[in-house]
């Protein structure tokens, strides 16, 4: 029996994948270069813009925003104020802004891609059956693996970081959009139909507004997942707090690693609570 199994030659899956990658890289190299340079310029511009704002003003804006979206409570506002001042004090402000741009960019792209895919999924069970396993695949594949094609397509830097983050962070938005629309009560759909709504009217006036809080929960997950890719993306040269964590790891600097890690945690908590509060406020 063992002999029989051993007689099957090894399937050359890895080289097929490599051939495919090579083909993609060769064929679309122009496009990839364009995205790489355009994306890099745009993101550098945003980071420069953010850095142009005096840090103290930026910190105050975030704190005031936190105060209002949490329903005039001081908790998150105070946390944001102290947390961001701490990050500034540790000399990590530039890194924070780089991370902010990376998270912002990958989240926005993931949302722009994810919501329409989720809508398509909710409207067609066939699409759902195709997309669902792909999402499972995307979520179970270790995040590191996405770095390889990212480097092949876009070289190193912030753009491949965004590429890997988008793939990693996309599934929750797609899933929650699909779920939210499918969970709209049947009689509301019937009501919308019985008044002669077109598909688009039904979607915009009934389904999306009712599914909104579910979709927002998905977006919240997407933002946090893209944040969690920051450290991994720094391995291929994406700048930001992740790079600090990585370099501390490589040099075994426990103190620096802790500070950079703590800064990431502070940032993550602020982002998470802010997006959640937006959701609650809209209900």
């Amino acid at each position: 029996m063992n002999n029989f199994l051993d007689n099957i030659p090894k399937l050359r899956v890895s080289s097929w994948v490599e051939d495919g990658m090579d083909w993609l890289t060769d064929t679309f190299s122009g496009l990839f270069k364009l995205i790489q340079s355009g994306g890099k310029n745009m993101m550098d511009g945003i980071t420069d813009g953010l850095l142009f704002i005096p840090p103290i003003l930026f910190i105050l804006i975030i704190a005031v925003l936190a105060f209002f979206v949490t329903g005039r409570k001081f908790g998150l506002a105070l946390f944001s104020l102290i947390g961001l001042l701490f990050i500034y004090n540790q000399g990590l402000w530039d890194e924070l802004m780089n991370t902010f741009t990376l998270v912002l960019f990958s989240s926005i792209i993931a949302i722009i891609l994810g919501i329409p895919i989720g809508i398509l999924m909710s409207k067609s069970t066939a699409v759902e059956n195709i997309v669902k396993p792909i999402l499972d695949f995307m979520q179970t594949m270790p995040g590191f693996v996405y770095l390889i094609p990212a480097v092949a397509f876009f070289g190193i830097g912030v753009v491949p970081g965004v590429f890997a983050s988008v793939i990693f962070a996309l599934p929750p938005t797609v899933r929650f959009t699909n779920l939210g629309i499918r969970q709209v009560p049947k009689d509301l759909i019937e009501a919308a139909d019985s008044y002669g709504s077109t598909g688009a009217q039904k979607l915009v006036k009934v389904e999306l507004p009712i599914a909104k809080s579910t979709i927002m929960a998905g977006i919240n997950q997407t933002v946090l997942l893209s944040l969690s890719m920051v450290v991994i993306a720094s391995m291929i040269g994406a700048p930001g707090l992740g790079r600090e964590v990585l370099s501390a790891l490589q040099r075994a600097q426990v103190g620096n690693g802790f500070v950079a890690g703590l800064s990431l945690v502070i940032f993550a908590i602020i982002v998470d609570r802010l997006t959640q509060s937006f959701n609650k406020q809209n209900r």
């Binding site: 009689d187 509301l188 019937e190 009501a191 019985s194 008044y195 002669g196 006036k205 507004p209 009712i210």
Partner: peptide, 17 residues
């Protein structure tokens, strides 16, 4: 559906938003 008929539902089916 728009011009001729309207429907009223058992559980009202009002849009909550």
């Amino acid at each position: 559906r728009r011009q001729k008929m309207s429907m009223v539902f058992q559980n009202f089916a009002l849009f909550p938003h």
